[in-house]
C-alpha cells in the first residue's frame, strides 16, 4: 500500500514539474509538439527509474564526499543507453529532441530524486517513486505540449484539427513556451487552492546539497 502511495504522489500531488518547479529546461524546449513532449517524458522516466534503482542499491557504498559525481556518472550512463535505443528504434524522435536528450543528465528532477529519495530509501519504494515522478513529468510535458501544438499549429499528435482557424504560430515558438507554462502553473495553483510558490527554495532545489543551503540563489 505504501509503495502505491510512493507511486501516486508524483503524478499530481507532488508533481515534480508543475508543483515542484523542477526540470524547466526540457519542459520549455521540447514541448512544441505533443509527441516530442511524450517522448521526452518517457525517456526521462526510464532514466529516473533506472538511476533510482541503482542509487538505492549503492546507497551504502557511495562515500558522502563524492556522491554528486557518482550520481551524475550513473545518470549519464543511462542517458547514453537511452540515446542508443532512440537512435536505433525511433530516429525521428532522436533528431527532434537533439541536444536535450543528452541534457537529461543534468535534469534537476533526476538528481533531486536521487538526493532526496533513492539515497535514503529501499529499492522497491525507490522504483515506485521514480516511476511516479517520471510519469508525472511525462503527464505535465504532454499537457503543455498539447496546448502549444493545438494553439500554435492547429494540430494534435500530427493530426490536423480544423482548417478554418488560423493557428497562432507564436505558441510553438519560444515566447509561447514561457507563456503556456506560466498559465498552466497558475491554473494548477488555482485548482489546488494553494498559494503560488514565491521562489524555488532550498527545499525544492537539488543543488542545495552542493551549495550547503546558503540560500543565496533565491535572494
Amino acid at each position: 500500500m505504501s509503495n502505491f502511495k510512493e507511486f501516486t504522489k508524483g503524478l499530481i500531488k507532488e508533481n515534480p514539474n508543475l508543483i515542484g518547479l523542477l526540470g524547466m529546461c526540457p519542459t520549455l524546449a521540447v514541448t512544441n509538439q505533443a509527441k516530442n513532449g511524450l517522448g521526452m517524458g518517457l525517456a526521462t522516466t526510464f532514466v529516473l527509474v533506472c538511476s533510482n534503482l541503482i542509487i538505492s542499491l549503492l546507497k551504502n557504498a557511495i562515500p558522502k564526499s563524492v556522491k554528486l559525481p557518482c550520481y551524475i556518472v550513473i545518470i549519464a550512463g543511462f542517458v547514453t543507453l537511452v540515446e542508443f535505443i532512440l537512435h536505433g528504434y525511433v530516429p525521428s524522435l532522436y533528431e527532434s529532441l537533439g541536444t536535450f536528450l543528452s541534457l537529461i543528465t543534468v535534469n534537476c528532477i533526476i538528481l533531486g530524486r536521487a538526493e532526496m529519495f533513492a539515497s535514503k530509501n529501499k529499492v522497491i519504494p525507490s522504483i515506485c517513486d521514480g516511476l511516479g515522478m517520471g510519469l508525472g513529468f511525462t503527464l505535465s510535458l504532454f499537457l503543455i505540449a498539447s496546448v502549444r501544438e493545438i494553439l500554435g499549429a492547429g494540430q494534435w499528435m500530427g493530426m490536423t484539427i480544423s482548417d478554418k482557424i488560423e493557428p497562432m504560430s507564436i505558441f510553438v515558438m519560444s515566447p509561447g513556451g514561457f507563456f503556456v507554462l506560466g498559465c498552466i502553473i497558475a491554473l494548477v495553483n488555482k485548482i489546488a487552492k494553494r498559494r503560488p510558490p514565491e521562489k524555488i527554495g532550498c527545499a525544492g532545489c537539488p543543488n542545495a546539497a552542493v551549495c550547503g543551503q546558503k540560500g543565496e540563489c533565491a535572494e
Binding site: S174, F178, I185, A186, N189, P197
Partner: peptide, 22 residues
C-alpha cells in the same frame, strides 16, 4: 492577481522578454 504571483508572473514576463529577442 493572487494566482499569478511568483513563478507564473515571472514566466509570463520572460515570455514578453523573449518576444523582444525574437
Amino acid at each position: 492577481p493572487d494566482t499569478f504571483k511568483g513563478v507564473p508572473s515571472t514566466l509570463i514576463a520572460a515570455s514578453i522578454v523573449s518576444v523582444s529577442f525574437m
